[in-house]
């Protein structure tokens, strides 16, 4: 990570710390982490646990945004993934069989990948603007999930399935481990191979990339498949955690939170340079925000208001123009392109 990226993440990190610290005034034991029955408990663990679906979705969204696209359908994919897994497990003769659950997980993720291929093909082969291409699945996908579950909430009682979202391994929540493993694998794959730089080139300048011999089509489809599979895993975690499939609630409006997390993490919506660490930080920040409103005892209705204020503060703190206006001397080079509006 270059110093520049670290600098970009400075303010989000400060906000996160401030948020966490502010909790202490309302809940003195906020930072206490205890070990009960071999499980770690505490508000910080809650922040991480509740951040898991969002972090996964944001991770996938980062790659899509880096290609210059956007994926609005992630919430619907989450709903489909959860619905498929729960329906499949519900139909098993023994819902407790590990093999059956693994098969259900495989089926859900496979279907998510198909959704990703659909998005990717619409964007890169047919050439539809990403926001519109994924709007199709966003609208229709939620309908499909509701069709699958018949508009009902499907409850399942399957201990192995429950482990994904609510289990613990060596005292750590399994969902947190899953996210950590997926993020680490993604970072390794993307930064150790040439995927990262090729995706950045495609996102920053599609024409120049084509003439440099980059096959953007394959990379773009991969990004959408990755985003959809990440959303699929997030859907499994969500539905495992509540031991049911709720096609209305699963992943509702998560695309907006995920995009927000990516932007907080310093990746521009126009594509190009991206930061996975930033997106994960963004997801944790949003999760901490939700938890904080809860601890502080702000009425639940105002969570959105609170979020809006934080978004405004964060975006302004990242806006070069705003910083230039506030701290006159601390102008970054990025603030002086040729097209700059006269100050």
């Amino acid at each position: 990570m270059t110093p520049l990226v670290r600098h970009r993440l400075f303010w989000p990190a400060v906000v996160l710390v401030l948020l966490l610290v502010s909790n202490v005034f309302f809940a003195p034991r906020f930072f206490t982490i205890t070990l009960q029955d071999g499980h770690l408990y505490g508000s910080l663990i809650d922040v991480l646990r509740s951040a898991t679906p969002l972090a996964l979705v944001a991770l996938g969204m980062t790659m899509v945004i880096a290609t210059g696209g956007i994926d609005l359908s992630v919430g619907s994919v989450m709903a489909i993934s959860g619905a498929v897994a729960c329906l499949f497990i519900g139909d098993l003769s023994d819902p407790g069989s590990v093999g059956g659950v693994l098969l259900a997980v495989g089926l859900a993720l496979g279907l998510s990948a198909v959704a990703g291929i659909w998005n990717g093909v619409l964007v890169s082969v047919i050439g539809i603007q990403p926001i519109i291409a994924t709007l199709i699945l966003m609208v229709a996908g939620r309908g499909i999930a509701q069709l699958l579950t018949g508009g009902q909430i499907i409850n399942v009682s399957s201990p192995p399935f429950r482990v994904i979202g609510a289990g613990y391994l060596l005292g750590v929540p399994v969902s947190v481990i899953i996210v950590a493993v997926v993020v680490a694998a993604a970072v390794l794959l993307i930064r150790r191979s040439a995927l990262g730089v090729l995706v950045e080139a495609v996102g920053a300048s599609p024409t120049a990339s084509r003439l440099a011999g980059i096959r953007a089509r394959g990379l773009t489809i991969m990004a959408y498949v990755f985003a959809a599979v990440c959303a699929g895993i997030a859907g499994l975690i969500f539905s495992s955690n509540v031991a049911s499939a709720d096609s209305n609630a699963a992943g509702n409006l998560i695309e907006l939170d995920a995009i927000l997390a990516v932007v907080i993490g310093g990746t521009a919506l126009t594509g190009g340079r991206f930061s996975i660490a930033g997106s994960v930080l963004g997801a944790v920040l949003i999760s901490a925000l939700d938890i904080t409103t809860y601890t502080i005892g702000v009425p639940a209705e105002t969570t959105l208001l609170f979020k809006a204020v934080v978004v405004v503060i964060l975006c302004l703190s990242q806006s070069a123009a705003f910083r230039a206006a506030v701290f006159r001397r601390r102008r970054t080079p990025a603030a002086t392109p040729a097209a700059e509006v006269p100050a």
Partner: peptide
């Protein structure tokens, strides 16, 4: 536009 990728 068709040559270098300015951001990289």
């Amino acid at each position: 536009t068709e040559g270098v990728v300015g951001e990289l």
